[in-house]
Design a protein around this nucleic acid. Structure first.
Lengths: 230, 230
DNA sequence: ATGTCCGTTTAACCTTTTTTAACAGGTATT
DNA sequence: AATACCTGTTAAAAAAGGTTAAACGGACAT
């Protein structure tokens, strides 16, 4: 499935709107419902690939809504959004067939990962990124292909090498902070991941040696910057 | 500017966290404060490029916080986040010097556009950009490359050396006050940073020795001035 | 299951960058 | 001239980054 459809039920209009838009940006097709009743009215079998439901909502809470949905389509995956204090209540959540839950406040990154994980489990749908070909001096970078072609031959990039290089190419001549890179690629900003990243910086620098005008500069205390000089 | 720093004051932890992360991913450097008081404690002149303040917050509301911030740095741009019902109150908002406001619920894209628009407006003029490559007598300074080429070979500049030299070159023959340099490069005008800067002045002076006509003069009690004599 | 391969992480050690500290000179003010 | 306050210089401590190799762990083939 190309654009997984999400039933998003969240009564806080601020959070709801932001989540709705974020999911859209990430290639999903979310439908925002502002309470449990609207969620129940909106759900139709076959119309959605996954449901993300807030627990505390007016008119009909997340559990009630989930039960209704499951009675219509027992296969559809459900993720609950829950306050930390409601953690224990998730026993009930899993009883009604929850696939996962996230405690508020949560990071969008985490939400995205959970959604992807659940979808991967439940459907064979794959998300295809835009295949890109970028020419940087004498180098040809094909992100979709994990490959970097240099005058002395092509290099097969590993997953992490590829994601990091992509991040730099997307932000050419701009500083990519360590935090952003770690969050985007390692999904966790920790000491060891930071050191791991340093190892990958070294690898990329080695690959880029063939093109004189291309350099990864370090911005001390901030991050790194891929610069292309003319 | 490279990574605009944002003071983000929002008491709703869900919205706050999501916004914080979104702004980070979009290349900003947000600092999240959970109430007005924390916002006031966090703000320091030179530490931020723009403030995004929720109006309704515990301890200190958005207006109070804005007033404090403006009394410290009257130039800093401020955007308010406000409930629709509070629209009329924005008269007061503009009185305390708001640059823009957004009514909740809002779309992240709108927020992004407003931020960019405000930054464009406020940062133009204050930022005389220099070309990638500047020739100063027998020296060639390549800002983008962190390098200074002298007759006796190229010098790789560190991040701080580079930023400081850039500031001087942008203000050739003009006094750069200590305060301005500290705010722009160290993001905090404190005693120790001032001494750190002195160390860097010494380093730059050493590098510039090769070109007789180029000197960093001290303007006592004010700052420094890079002069080029013919 | 078991072993091997390969990407990734962890660890140890080293280098560079930046900050802090201490002291020595200057400059303005009274 | 005495004082207080800046600035210059140098060295050290502290923080951040660079390099390399071994350990880990999942995927795959045997």
């Amino acid at each position: 499935m190309d654009n997984p459809r999400i039933l998003l039920a969240e009564d806080d209009p601020n959070l709801g709107q932001v989540l709705n838009e974020y999911l859209m940006l990430k290639g999903f097709k979310p439908t925002l419902c502002v309470d449990g009743q609207q969620g129940a009215d909106t759900f139709k079998p076959g119309k959605f690939d996954i449901c993300i439901l807030d627990l505390m909502m007016p008119k009909k809470d997340g559990f009630q809504l989930a039960e209704e949905i499951k009675s219509i389509d027992p296969e559809i995956p459900i993720i609950f959004l829950t306050a930390k204090s409601m953690k224990e209540d998730m026993v009930q959540g899993f009883q009604v067939g929850a696939d996962d839950y996230i405690t508020k406040p949560f990071s969008m990154e985490v939400l995205l990962l959970r959604i992807k994980a659940v979808l991967k489990r439940t459907m064979s749908g794959t998300h295809s990124e835009i295949p890109d070909e970028v020419t940087l001096g004498c180098l040809k970078y094909q992100y979709a292909d994990n490959s970097l072609t240099t005058p002395s031959g092509p290099i097969k990039l590993t997953t992490k090498e590829n994601e990091l290089l992509k991040l730099f190419v997307e932000n050419l001549n701009q500083t990519v902070t360590r935090t952003v890179a770690l969050k985007k690629i390692w999904h966790d900003d920790s000491y060891f991941n930071a050191r791991s990243m340093d190892v990958y910086i070294a690898k990329l620098r080695k690959y880029l040696k063939e093109e004189e005008s291309l350099k990864i500069l370090t911005v001390h205390g901030e991050g790194f910057k891929l610069v292309h000089m003319h």
